[in-house]
Each structure stands twice: as structure tokens, then as C-alpha cells.
């Protein structure tokens, strides 16, 4: 495996992508989960798929799109969808969760149409849905690293404000924090991270990488910084481990990554039970 990493550039790209996404997805996911917005990742990933398939469809007729990385269009559509979600939530004040299935349905509907209109995609459908080791290109890496840098910078600058907004939105507003601006910025970053994570884990599993490491960390952490730290550790274990197994077993990396994340969660919950059981015995 190490030798292959050295010899094949596509493997190197896949591993760089896995390491960066394993860090970025749980980092932003920590805020997504505590804000009770876990399902947003699903909605945005489906819309990103629509953007990618639209770009591939256009690529058959417009020369400009033929050479353009479809992930760019996917990312752009994901950002637009994230901002529209905000608008939709405002339209359904008492049923804000409705914005998720509306966006998800629109994304899947558009994806189905563009995929069926296209004659022979250059990327096969399963890699879009479940991720692929060979699908990560050099331009993907640039986009993934760029998004990771933007995410880290935004979190470093706005950590305090985002934490306050996540914990108590009303109080944050009273304190004079620009809550609407912060929320839009947050949604913008979430949409970027989801779009670029698709290459490795695929549309159907991207939300797992955002939420599962955080779900495991939440079981035993008491401060938010601890939650982020452990979520990132679990995210890295899942993505790097998942990619290694996927390569050795020749299966879609998304599935293995998610199963390892589920395994981590199950292990944490088992140990948690054992500890609480022992406490009771004492």
C-alpha cells in the first residue's frame, strides 16, 4: 500500500483528500449537530449531485463545461441551495424542518433528469453516490484544500460568535451579534464542505461524515472544544482507515468510511455503558 501510494498519484490525491475532509467535515459538523441541523447535510449533498450532473450534462453540449471540473458547479449550486434554505426556513416559521425535504426532493429530481438526459457520463453513477478513490483529481485537491483553509479561518475568527449563536440564538442577538450574517456565513461554509466531501464519501453518505464522528464525541465530552477535538480524531480514523480498507478490498470508500464511523460510535456507546454499569456496582 505504501509503495502504491508512492507510485500512483490518484492514490496520493485520495489520501490527501481523505485527511483534509476527515478534519473539515467533523469540524463544521460539530456546529451543525449542536444547532440541530444534521439533516441539512443530506439536503445539500443531494443538491450538489444535481449541480454535478447538470455540469456533466452541459459538458456534452458546451465546450466550456466539457473541461470544467463538475465539482465546481456542484459547489456553486450547493451554496445557492444553502442560502435558499435560509429563505425557505423563514417562509415556514412554524415548520422550518420542511425546508429540508423540499430542497432534497428538488435536488434529487433535478439529478434524475440530468442523469437521464446525459448519454454516458465520464464519471460513473456509483462513484457520485458512494464516493471513489480514483475519482479525486488534482483540481479536486486544490478545491478541497482551499475549502478547508476557508473553513478553518472562518471558525478561528468566528468561533466564539458561532458557539454563542448555536447555544442561545436569542441571547446572542440581544448581545448585539450579527446573527443573520453569521448564519448565512455558516450555511455558506457548510455547503462548501459538503460539496467537496462528495468526492470521497459520495452523495448518499456525506452527511454521515458530518454527523457520526460528532455523535460519538457527544457521548462523553463536556466542553465544546473537547467535542470538536474528538470528532476530528474520529473523523480522521474513519476516513484514513476507510480509504485503506476500501483500497485493499476494492470497494466504494464511502461505505467503509461510514461503517468505521458507525463502529466508533458503537464502541463509544458500549464503553459508556460499561463505565456507567461499573459506577452503579460501586
Amino acid at each position: 500500500m505504501i509503495v502504491d501510494l508512492w507510485n500512483y498519484s490518484f492514490l496520493r490525491y485520495a489520501f490527501i483528500a481523505a485527511i483534509v475532509i476527515g478534519f473539515t467535515a467533523p469540524l463544521i459538523g460539530s456546529f451543525v449537530v449542536v444547532r440541530r441541523m444534521s439533516l441539512i447535510a443530506d439536503a445539500l449533498s443531494h443538491v450538489t449531485l444535481a449541480g454535478i450532473s447538470f455540469s456533466l450534462f452541459l459538458g456534452q453540449y458546451v465546450a466550456l463545461f466539457a473541461d470544467l471540473n463538475p465539482l465546481y458547479m456542484g459547489t456553486f449550486i450547493s451554496v445557492l441551495a444553502a442560502l435558499s434554505l435560509n429563505w425557505l426556513r423563514g417562509k415556514y416559521i412554524h415548520f422550518q424542518e420542511l425546508s429540508i425535504p423540499i430542497m432534497m426532493s428538488a435536488g434529487m429530481g433535478l439529478s434524475a433528469i440530468f442523469i437521464s438526459l446525459s448519454r454516458g457520463f465520464s464519471i460513473d453513477l456509483s462513484s457520485l453516490l458512494f464516493g471513489s478513490i480514483s475519482a479525486v483529481s488534482q483540481s479536486d485537491i486544490m478545491l478541497i484544500v482551499g475549502v478547508a483553509l476557508v473553513t478553518v479561518i472562518v471558525i478561528l475568527i468566528f468561533y466564539k460568535q458561532l458557539l454563542f449563536l448555536s447555544f442561545d440564538e436569542e441571547q446572542a442577538k440581544v448581545s448585539g451579534l450579527p446573527s443573520t450574517m453569521l448564519h448565512i456565513l455558516f450555511m455558506f461554509i457548510v455547503s462548501l464542505v459538503i460539496a467537496v466531501s462528495m468526492r470521497i464519501v459520495g452523495t448518499l453518505l456525506v452527511s454521515s461524515l458530518i454527523t457520526l464522528p460528532v455523535a460519538a464525541a457527544l457521548r462523553f465530552t463536556s466542553s465544546f472544544k473537547q467535542t470538536i477535538l474528538w470528532a476530528v480524531i474520529f473523523g480522521e480514523v474513519a476516513t484514513i482507515g476507510g480509504l485503506l480498507f476500501a483500497y485493499e478490498l476494492d470497494v466504494a470508500p464511502g461505505g467503509v468510511i461510514v461503517l468505521i464511523a458507525v463502529g466508533i460510535l458503537a464502541t463509544v456507546m458500549t464503553f459508556e455503558r460499561m463505565i456507567s454499569f461499573r459506577k452503579k456496582e460501586v
Binding site: V34, R36, L163, S166, F167, D168, A217, L218, T221, S222, S223, F224, Q226, T227
Partner: peptide
């Protein structure tokens, strides 16, 4: 009535 599971000290 805040989210009591929120991981903050």
C-alpha cells in the same frame, strides 16, 4: 429549556 445535551461547561 435549552438543549441540555449541548456540550458546554
Amino acid at each position: 429549556s435549552f438543549n441540555s445535551g449541548f456540550p458546554v461547561t
